[in-house]
Amino acid sequence: EVDTLELTRQVKEKLAKNGICQRIFGEKVLGLSQGSVSDMLSRPKPWSKLTQKGREPFIRMQLWLSDQL
């Protein structure tokens, strides 16, 4: 189980620290539009309420944070 709230907090922190905009992060890392990324980072759904497809971007965020992506 992933703590989506904590994960998105860490992602936002790393984006800010490295000067990466959400649009680029969305396109290059998540394969999503800036609007989708913005929504996901500001209002993450609980892991238990996400479908497999809904969980994929959060898994990619985890990999990106651990420099595996």
Rank of each mutant, 00 (worst) to 15 (best):
35 G>H: 12
46 P>Y: 10
36 S>M: 12
7 L>F: 08
5 L>Q: 12
35 G>R: 14
32 L>W: 12
56 E>V: 07
2 V>T: 08
2 V>P: 05
12 K>T: 04
28 K>F: 03
2 V>C: 08
50 L>P: 00
44 P>C: 08
24 I>Y: 15
18 N>S: 13
26 G>W: 01
42 S>M: 14
54 G>S: 10
27 E>I: 08
68 Q>V: 11
50 L>V: 01
19 G>Y: 09
20 I>T: 11
21 C>N: 14
17 K>A: 10
67 D>G: 13
69 L>T: 06
9 R>H: 03
6 E>H: 08
47 W>A: 00
37 V>G: 06
10 Q>D: 13
50 L>Q: 00
19 G>F: 05
29 V>F: 07
21 C>W: 09
35 G>E: 15
57 P>I: 14
60 R>C: 01
1 E>N: 11
10 Q>T: 08
35 G>K: 15
20 I>S: 03
60 R>Q: 09
17 K>W: 04
56 E>N: 03
44 P>Q: 08
21 C>Q: 07
26 G>Y: 07
42 S>D: 14
52 Q>V: 12
31 G>Y: 02
45 K>Y: 04
39 D>P: 07
22 Q>I: 05
69 L>E: 11
14 K>C: 15
57 P>H: 12
34 Q>K: 15
30 L>K: 07
27 E>K: 13
34 Q>N: 14
2 V>I: 15
40 M>V: 12
60 R>I: 01
61 M>F: 07
68 Q>C: 13
13 E>D: 15
41 L>R: 05
57 P>D: 10
9 R>T: 08
62 Q>Y: 04
39 D>Q: 13
57 P>F: 12
31 G>V: 01
68 Q>G: 08
59 I>R: 15
69 L>N: 11
36 S>E: 15
19 G>P: 13
40 M>R: 08
3 D>R: 03
45 K>P: 11
60 R>F: 00
33 S>G: 12
59 I>E: 14
1 E>M: 14
2 V>K: 14
8 T>P: 07
28 K>G: 07
44 P>L: 08
30 L>Q: 02
63 L>T: 13
13 E>H: 07
22 Q>R: 11
36 S>W: 11
22 Q>H: 05
51 T>M: 08
65 L>S: 00
11 V>G: 08
25 F>G: 00
61 M>S: 01
49 K>Y: 04
7 L>K: 14
52 Q>E: 13
35 G>T: 14
56 E>K: 07
1 E>C: 14
18 N>K: 14
51 T>I: 13
34 Q>H: 14
20 I>P: 05
37 V>F: 14
5 L>I: 14
23 R>C: 03
4 T>F: 13
24 I>E: 15
23 R>V: 07
57 P>R: 10
61 M>I: 03
48 S>Q: 10
19 G>H: 03
11 V>S: 07
29 V>M: 09
29 V>D: 02
62 Q>T: 03
25 F>N: 00
63 L>G: 06
6 E>S: 10
15 L>C: 09
48 S>A: 11
4 T>G: 04
63 L>R: 15
66 S>I: 12
56 E>D: 06
14 K>Y: 12
2 V>F: 12
42 S>C: 13
59 I>W: 04
53 K>S: 14
56 E>R: 07
